[in-house]
Simulated assay, not measured.
Amino acid sequence: MKALKLLDNAIVKIEEFILSYAVIIIAVMVVGKALSRAIFSYTPPFADEVSQIAIVIATFMGISYAARKGRHISMSAFYDLAPFKLRKALAILISLVTAVILFVLTYYSALYVQNVYQDGTVTSALQMPKYYLYLFIPIGFFLGGVQFLRNMWINIRDREAVYIGTDAKDYNDQDKKDIMEETHL
């Protein structure tokens, strides 16, 4: 069990590193391209590709991180109004269904990456194999599926609270004071 905890901590650190640097790269490329165009009337040909790669990486690698932290998008109007037991059951069911969907998407995106690899296509500016860009898609879907399974498991194991992420309890179960303290910087 300790080995799994170490692996989980390593994955969190890797996700945080990848996500933070992807966002920094997006900002540098977009601002740099605009400044270069305005000052020198020149746009580096690689700027769009690097930005695209960073956006794909941030998007798909962010699935797992958002699920872990309970920051994923949710339509929770009915969920928020439901009593505790129904919210608990919904948290388990939603996590299971989401994990299954993400694993199916992992399979199909891996097939797509394999097709791109076999085609041997490269990006136009960097001349980098395109499958490098797309490798992050099945990895992100897979890690997201694993994280939603973990969310389901923590909701099954802990009967006292509802978790929207392994690191986040449902805000419906928190006191108003706790919520206010978390929302202020």
Rank of each mutant, 00 (worst) to 15 (best):
K5S: 11
N9W: 10
N9E: 12
A10H: 09
I18K: 01
L19N: 10
Y21F: 15
I24D: 02
A27F: 14
V28R: 00
K33Y: 00
A34T: 12
I39T: 04
F40C: 05
P45D: 11
A47R: 11
V50G: 00
S51H: 11
S51G: 09
I53Y: 13
A54R: 05
A54N: 03
V56F: 12
M61H: 02
G62D: 01
Y65V: 02
G70A: 04
G70D: 01
H72C: 07
M75H: 06
S76T: 15
A77G: 09
F78I: 14
F78S: 12
F78N: 08
Y79P: 09
Y79T: 01
D80C: 09
F84P: 06
K85R: 13
R87F: 05
A89W: 03
A91W: 06
L96M: 03
V97C: 05
T98K: 03
T98N: 06
A99H: 07
I101R: 02
I101M: 14
I101C: 12
F103A: 10
V104G: 09
Y108Q: 02
S109G: 08
Q114Y: 11
N115E: 12
Y117F: 15
Q118V: 10
G120A: 09
V122P: 02
T123G: 05
S124K: 10
A125M: 10
A125K: 12
L126R: 07
M128R: 09
K130V: 07
Y131T: 04
Y134C: 04
L135N: 10
P138N: 07
F142E: 05
L143N: 06
G145S: 07
V146F: 13
Q147L: 05
F148L: 07
N151D: 14
N151Y: 12
I154M: 09
I154P: 06
I156K: 02
D158V: 10
R159N: 14
R159L: 13
Y163T: 02
A168D: 06
A168N: 05
K169G: 11
D170H: 05
N172K: 15
Q174C: 09
D175T: 15
D175W: 05
K177Q: 15
E181P: 01
E182Q: 13
H184I: 12
H184N: 09
L185E: 14
